[in-house]
Simulated assay, not measured.
Amino acid sequence: MSNDFTLTQLRYFMAVAEAGSMTAAAQSLSVTQSTVSAAIAQLEHEVGQPLFLRLARRGLELTPAGRRLRSRALGFLEDAGTLLAAVRDEDAELEGEMTVGIFAPLAPFRAPVILQAFERAYPKVHVRFFEADQEGLRLALAQGRCEVALMYDLGVAVDAESQVVETVAPHVIVAADHPAAANPFGEVSLRDLEADPFVLYDVPHSRDYFLALFRQLGLTPRVRHRASGYETVRSFVSRGHGYSILNQRLHHDLTYSGGSVVPLRIVEDLPPIKVVLLFPSLGTPTRRAQAFAAVCRQLYGVDL
């Protein structure tokens, strides 16, 4: 293996990895397909192993070596741009495209607010959000398809590659005509609700977290309904089908079904969910990813 690769070859490689085909990458780069193919072939020669698997009728798929290269190439190309700006005695303003992974249930609550603040601070960076579950986000980070991911810490080790953005306490929601809704302090004990039907927010990791809250108190909820949609849970509750526990709170109490819910603080001391930013484990976070984290710090007041 030699080290005679070029920045152009790396950029072409990243375009092919993103598009999944030589033809689509060539179109996005405004060059011929043969030019892209030659660059990839030369890069594979320098690396000493294939970077893509050629799959019949399925385009191209990154090999393990290709995934490792993609994870590191983002930061490398960004550093190259910073170096050129320094040589030219220019300010290295952030620009380009950035893909941010986000846990799908978090997206409607956090993505629009963060995007508005980030675009105001860095107008030359185009952010694309990739919504997925926890496993999908970890895979996207490992494959270099995201520069950073905003997710819950459920099933994720909070380590050197992650930063806590916010802690969100669980709360109960009940229908407006539920007896607990009349509590003058806006609070309730889970022990008082154990016999009531429970509507479980049934998505991976989150359901385990909610059920663990009951186990911690030695309680067993009467799970009457399971729903994988956040608004579905709220609608079921608003129509009197049971109570539920959620973390994210809306700015209003109306539901899609036309009813309303009443949020109540849980009197028992229960663990919150942590909202974290997770970075790829290979290489250092890009400047864009670090800037994204800084915007989250400004919005949520957390010292990242």
Rank of each mutant, 00 (worst) to 15 (best):
E44M: 09
A293M: 10
Q9P: 11
Q27N: 14
E93N: 12
V237T: 03
Q27S: 14
R239L: 11
D133G: 15
L94C: 11
L299W: 02
R138N: 14
G48C: 08
L137M: 08
K274R: 15
R224H: 09
F118N: 03
R67G: 04
G81F: 01
L250S: 11
F185H: 12
D153T: 01
A24W: 05
L83E: 14
E131T: 12
P285Q: 02
S238F: 07
L141Q: 00
V203P: 04
A142G: 07
V127K: 05
R265N: 12
L254I: 06
G96H: 12
A212S: 15
G283M: 03
L69G: 02
E187R: 13
R249C: 05
S244A: 15
H241C: 10
V276P: 00
A212E: 14
L213V: 04
S30H: 15
S228N: 14
S162A: 15
L264S: 02
P50V: 03
P272C: 10
A149E: 02
Q9H: 11
L299Y: 05
A149W: 01
G144W: 02
L250V: 07
P179T: 09
R239V: 08
Y201K: 04
R54L: 11
L264T: 04
R145K: 13
K124V: 08
P285M: 07
D91G: 08
I273D: 00
R239P: 02
L200A: 04
R70Q: 12
V125A: 08
A180W: 04
V188T: 03
H171V: 01
L10A: 05
A15R: 01
L139A: 11
T99V: 15
T232L: 12
D89K: 13
L60E: 02
T167W: 02
P112S: 12
V165C: 10
L29F: 06
L84A: 15
S71R: 09
S238K: 05
L219C: 06
T99P: 00
Q248N: 14
I273R: 05
E95I: 09
A181K: 01
L10V: 10
Q248Y: 08
V295E: 04
Y201W: 12
V261G: 04
R120P: 02
E61A: 13
H225D: 07
E131A: 14
A157T: 13
A149L: 06
E147Q: 12
V295T: 11
K274C: 07
Q9C: 11
D133A: 05
E187T: 11
C296L: 13
L77D: 09
H178M: 00
E95Q: 15
L53A: 14
R68T: 03
H252S: 13
Q134P: 06
S235I: 06
